[in-house]
Simulated assay, not measured.
Amino acid sequence: MRPALPCLPLALAFAGTGASAAPTPFAGPRVEVMLGYDATELPDEDGPEVMFGLRAGKDYGSGPWRVGFDVDLSRSNADKVVTDLFVPGDRIHVEYGTDLYLGLRVGRRLGDHSFGYGLAGAASTHMAVDYSGDLDTIPTEPGGPEPEKFRRPGRLIGFWTGGGIEFALDGPFFLRSEYRYANFHDGLYRHQALVGIGSRF
């Protein structure tokens, strides 16, 4: 046994190095896919609206606390046509493009396999609005103003906030449940409830 004694400090040193290199739970870079429900300011006359997207980010750990950032791109089938919105016979068509979210999140470990967090950041979406009245059904006086027609394309900038819970699965994989709210100018907003599945590396 004595010949092995000089090797004991070296073995302990390697063991300590391996322990310090162990990954910190709920920390490090990550990627995921998302799917969820998307509700806008217009009535849901055409049924449920679905959003889907990709997200990447990184979390830093200290004790039970985590601080990280998120970047994600998403799309939605929230495009819709609504009639009789302001006056009988009018028509509004809203078409959404790609959504971009950039923000921070702060949270705390709730246990060995769960992590709760809040998030906030900037939101950007592309939305085109076409509105017109039906001249055949809207009564107008001779010489009076005609129903308005307008189109507003462009990118809207706002803020978003929300929160969620992340659950650790086998290996580097995780499952997330999240709610977030985005608000843009002119009173435009979105509510989204989503689930995500991803991996840390």
Rank of each mutant, 00 (worst) to 15 (best):
S177H: 02
R30A: 04
L175N: 03
T140R: 13
F86Y: 11
V33A: 15
G198W: 02
S124L: 14
P145I: 00
W65N: 10
N77F: 03
D84M: 09
A56I: 12
Y117H: 04
L5H: 06
W160D: 06
Q192R: 10
L156G: 05
G121L: 07
T161N: 05
D170H: 13
S132I: 07
T98N: 11
M1Y: 12
F52I: 11
F174K: 00
G61E: 07
A27V: 06
Y189N: 15
L175Q: 06
T140L: 12
A168D: 08
V195S: 06
L35D: 05
L12N: 15
V81D: 14
Y37Q: 09
R152S: 15
D79W: 01
G61P: 03
R190K: 13
P145M: 00
S20F: 15
H126P: 03
S62N: 09
I92R: 12
L119Y: 01
P25I: 02
E166T: 08
F69H: 10
M127S: 09
D112V: 02
R190L: 13
G198N: 04
S177G: 08
T125K: 11
Y117G: 00
F173Q: 11
H185L: 13
F167R: 05
R176T: 05
E166C: 01
G187N: 12
H93Q: 10
G116Q: 00
S76P: 01
D59P: 08
P29F: 03
R109Y: 04
Y101G: 04
A27W: 03
T17Q: 14
A4V: 11
G28S: 02
L104F: 10
G158T: 09
P139N: 08
S74H: 06
T161L: 14
L12P: 08
A122I: 14
G171L: 02
D134A: 02
S114A: 14
E141H: 11
P43L: 09
A168P: 04
F86D: 15
G16E: 13
I92P: 06
P29E: 01
F69D: 07
Y37R: 08
P172G: 08
A4M: 13
A22H: 03
T140Y: 05
R151I: 06
R180M: 04
H126V: 11
G57C: 06
L188W: 14
G97S: 10
L135C: 08
D130R: 15
R200H: 03
L12T: 11
M127D: 03
G162A: 03
R155P: 05
L119D: 00
S199M: 12
G118N: 01
G198R: 00
D70W: 07
R200S: 02
G158I: 08
F69M: 09
C7L: 15
A4G: 10
